Deep mutational scan, measured.
Amino acid sequence: RTVITEEFKVPDKMVGFIIGRGGEQISRIQAESGCKIQIASESSGIPERPCVLTGTPESIEQAKRLLGQIVDRCRN
């Protein structure tokens, strides 16, 4: 099985929602997708915060879908 790493950007102001209380939301996304997610600790003042996704191509797609759902929910 091929493990790859891909960068994905999330809106900086939504990082708190993505991580969740005590990290529970990000842990759930990682468990559900099987993908490791590392969010940069600093956005360096830019509106997007880079995340590094590591896993199989399928797990990365699943993680991006779950992250996208959270971002959409927070935008509305």
Rank of each mutant, 00 (worst) to 15 (best):
V52Q: 15
G34D: 09
G45C: 07
D12K: 09
V15T: 05
E42C: 06
R65N: 15
I29V: 10
S43N: 06
E24Y: 15
G45K: 07
I60T: 03
T2G: 14
P47G: 10
I39C: 05
I39R: 01
N76H: 07
D12S: 12
S41H: 07
E61L: 08
R75V: 14
E58R: 08
F17P: 07
I26F: 04
T54G: 01
G55I: 00
A40Q: 15
L66H: 05
A40H: 12
E7D: 13
C74H: 15
G20Q: 06
D12Y: 06
A40G: 13
T5L: 02
P11D: 09
I37W: 00
N76A: 15
P47L: 11
I18Q: 03
E6Y: 05
I29M: 07
Q30L: 02
Q30Y: 02
I19L: 13
T2R: 15
V10R: 00
E42D: 13
I46N: 15
E6R: 07
V71C: 08
G55Y: 00
T56A: 08
S44F: 10
R73S: 11
Q25W: 03
T56R: 06
Q38C: 10
G22D: 15
R1Y: 06
P11S: 04
Q62E: 13
C74V: 12
I46V: 14
V10C: 06
A63P: 00
P11T: 05
K64S: 02
P11G: 03
L66Q: 09
G20K: 05
R21Q: 13
L53G: 00
Q30G: 04
S59R: 05
R28V: 03
G20M: 02
V52D: 04
G16W: 03
I26T: 03
Q25V: 08
T54Q: 13
E48P: 03
G45S: 10
G68M: 14
C74N: 14
C74E: 11
G68T: 10
I18Y: 03
S44E: 14
L66K: 09
C35F: 00
I39V: 12
T54S: 08
E42S: 12
E6Q: 09
K64V: 02
C51L: 09
K64M: 02
E7W: 07
G45A: 11
K9W: 10
E24V: 12
L66S: 09
I18N: 02
S27I: 04
L53V: 03
G23V: 04
I26K: 03
T5N: 08
K13E: 12
A63E: 00
T56D: 04
S33D: 01
P11M: 03
E58Q: 09
R1C: 15
M14I: 02
A63T: 02
Q25Y: 04
V3E: 12
I4H: 05
V15W: 03
V15K: 06
F8Q: 02
S43A: 09
I18G: 03
L53T: 00
E48V: 06
S59I: 01
S27Q: 09
G45Q: 11
K64C: 02
E48M: 11
E24F: 11
E48R: 05
G22I: 08
I29Y: 01
G55R: 00
D72P: 05
I39K: 01
G16Q: 12
I60G: 00
C51T: 06
A40Y: 06
F17W: 10
P57A: 13
F17T: 08
V3W: 07
I18K: 03
A31K: 15
F8T: 11
S33F: 01
D72R: 11
I39E: 02
P50T: 10
V52M: 11
E32A: 08
R65G: 10
I4V: 11
V15G: 05
I70N: 03
E48S: 11
G23S: 08
I19V: 12
V71G: 07
I29R: 00
T2A: 10
Q69E: 15
I39M: 09
T5A: 09
P47K: 13
G22K: 14
V3H: 05
G23C: 04
G20V: 01
Q25F: 07
S43L: 07
S59T: 06
R75G: 15
R65C: 07
P11C: 03
Q69S: 14
V71N: 09
S41R: 15
R28E: 08
S41C: 12
C51K: 00
S41Y: 04
I29D: 02
D12H: 05
Q25S: 12
F17I: 10
L53Q: 00
T5C: 03
D12F: 04
R28P: 01
Q30M: 07
G55S: 00
L53Y: 00
E7V: 12
Q38Y: 04
A31R: 14
V10Y: 02
E42T: 11
E58L: 04
G22A: 11
L66G: 05
G23Y: 04
L67F: 02
P50V: 12
V15R: 03
V10N: 01
L67D: 00
I70W: 07
Q25K: 12
K9T: 10
V15M: 09
V10P: 01
E42R: 14
Q38R: 10
I37V: 10
G23A: 11
R65P: 01
A40W: 07
K9G: 14
I37R: 01
C51S: 02
E58W: 04
T56F: 04
T5W: 04
Q69K: 11
S43Y: 08
P57M: 06
L67Y: 00
A63L: 01
G68D: 14
C35S: 03
C74I: 10
P50S: 11
P47T: 09
P11K: 02
N76I: 04
C35I: 02
Q69N: 10
D12G: 07
R65T: 13
E24M: 13
I29P: 01
D72G: 12
I46D: 10
A40S: 13
A31E: 15
A63D: 00
I46P: 15
E42W: 09
C51D: 01
I60K: 01
L53P: 00
V15N: 02
T56Y: 10
L53N: 00
F8A: 04
I70R: 13
E6I: 06
I18V: 08
S33L: 02
P57S: 06
A63I: 02
E58I: 03
A31C: 12
I19A: 08
K36V: 07
E42A: 11
R1H: 12
Q30N: 02
R1N: 15
Q69G: 13
E61N: 09
C51N: 01
A40R: 14
K64F: 00
F8H: 04
Q25R: 15
I37G: 01
A40P: 13
E42Y: 08
R28L: 05
K36T: 10
L67C: 02
A63G: 09
M14E: 03
R73I: 05
Q30C: 08
C35E: 01
I19N: 14
S41E: 14
G22F: 07
E32T: 10
E32D: 14
G34R: 08
D12R: 07
K9S: 15
R73C: 05
R73Y: 05
T5R: 09
G16C: 08
R1P: 03
I4T: 11
I39Q: 02
I70F: 11
P57K: 14
R21Y: 04
F17A: 13
S27D: 08
D12V: 05
I29L: 12
G34W: 01
E48I: 04
C74K: 12
Q25H: 08
F17V: 12
N76S: 11
T54H: 13
Q30I: 05
V3D: 06
L67T: 01
A63V: 02
E6A: 09
V10G: 01
V71M: 13
R75E: 15
I37M: 03
I29H: 01
I60H: 01
R28H: 06
V71E: 09
V10S: 01
A31Y: 08
R1G: 11
T5V: 08
K9D: 05
I26G: 01
R75M: 14
E48D: 14
Q69Y: 03
K13R: 11
S43M: 08
K36Y: 05
K36A: 09
I19K: 10
E61T: 13
K64L: 02
E61S: 12
I39W: 05
I4A: 06
C74F: 07
I26M: 10
E61M: 09
D12W: 03
C51P: 01
